Simulated scan of single mutants.
Amino acid sequence: MTILRDFSQAAKKFGLALTLASSFAIAATSGAKAQDTPDLSGVTLTVGTPNKTGLHRQLIAAGEVDNLPYKINWADFDSTPPLVEALRAGHVDIAAGGDTGVLAAIANGVKVTIVAATWERKESGSAVLVRGDSDLKTVADLKGRKVALPYFTKQHYQFATALQQAGLPFDPKLILNLNTTDGLSALVNSQVDAFVVWDPNTAIAQQQHGARILQPLGRVIDTAGVVYVPTSSLEDPARKAALKDITARIVRAQAWVNAHPAEWAQQVSKLSKISLEAAHLQASRSRVEHAPATDPQALAGWQKQVTYFHEGGQFRKDFKVEDYVARDFGEVIEAENKKLAKTN
């Protein structure tokens, strides 16, 4: 009996020791997790948008800015080049839009990192516009004509490719570097014969000014758009965590836009102050999907652009685009895409 009693007491002590050890282990693990999770309450992210239907409106319309663990500001621009300049100056933390402006910035020494690729799965409103009464029928008919174009946008590269296919040179004396507002005004007032632009500007020009699409540029060449951040932001654990969080929200917001075109058009019209007809037209011809920045097809397209602009003397340096992508953000995008696939 004494032996059994001693054994029982020893077992109880051993069990208590195991319980205490287990408790200490759980506490240590919880403490480590707490240390690994940065406090985001002191982080403020400024989201840059280069058009009237980008991240700013998408995140709001999809309800992805509710109950954020960090603060958020908005910065809206006319196109990607001025947005990238704001990013260079430290006034923008994350943005999405055309790839050409970002690649041009990298070529000029701006420290930018691409965190995601965006693919347009429909025709979109990227186009060469002419007036409704214009006699122009093809891109080849633009020979000797004046064209308005915001330089170093995706449409710059697409239009240059369209000219190349038509056997025409890219002549800076005829192809004028105008922003979207001035470009539309120049077209309407017959100061130029064509205007190269994107939605919702294309839809507005069609619906409100009777413009006609001469050439849809998505049919000429398709390259992936980009989501990008200042490289320095990835060196701050808290800011990087916030950027990964909002990247996931960006993917979800775009999925919401894809699934709710009518409601999205209503929101665009309200938030961006454009006509409902133009908003519906824009929504009807766009469906964007996100992919990791390491997507081979995206990388190949971007690299081809770098070669084109460098050989043409418009990029100061040649570089490998894969050296400027954040590989670990791909895990965030793939995880969100898998979740979305299960719910669809």
Rank of each mutant, 00 (worst) to 15 (best):
A61R: 03
V47F: 01
K143E: 14
I94R: 02
T53F: 05
I114P: 12
G101Y: 02
H56M: 04
L68Y: 01
S275D: 15
R57A: 05
K137V: 14
L16K: 08
I175F: 03
R327P: 08
L59R: 00
R285D: 06
A61N: 02
I114H: 11
V268N: 06
T180Y: 10
W302K: 00
D199F: 03
V130R: 00
K137L: 07
S22W: 14
Q158C: 01
Q314F: 07
A238P: 07
A194W: 00
L178I: 04
F319W: 00
L168G: 13
V227H: 11
T138K: 01
V288M: 05
L281H: 11
L103C: 06
S275V: 05
R219P: 11
D78Q: 13
L217E: 03
D193N: 05
M1D: 10
Y151G: 02
V288W: 15
V288I: 13
V139R: 01
S23M: 06
E311M: 07
A89T: 10
A21P: 08
I94E: 12
S8F: 13
T113N: 12
A211V: 00
I72G: 03
D245K: 09
Y151H: 11
K52E: 09
R287L: 15
T19M: 12
Q9T: 09
I221Q: 05
R316V: 09
I3G: 04
T181L: 13
T100L: 07
V130A: 09
K137A: 06
I204W: 07
V325D: 14
T161N: 04
S286H: 12
A238D: 15
V84F: 13
E289T: 08
Q314R: 05
G109T: 12
L271G: 06
A283D: 08
K173F: 11
A160K: 03
T113R: 14
G132M: 06
V257E: 13
A300C: 11
G97R: 04
A104F: 09
T37A: 13
K173M: 10
A255P: 07
G101K: 01
I250C: 05
E289S: 07
A27R: 06
D245C: 11
A293D: 09
A28Q: 10
R252A: 03
S185F: 10
G101L: 01
P50Q: 00
T153S: 11
L214H: 00
L217G: 01
A62Q: 12
D328M: 10
A203H: 01
G98E: 05
P296I: 15
T294Y: 10
Q254H: 10
S8D: 15
V227N: 10
D318H: 05
G90I: 01
L16R: 14
A242W: 13
S232C: 10
V220T: 08
D318L: 12
A211H: 00
Y157T: 15
Q35E: 12
A34D: 15
L243A: 11
S22C: 09
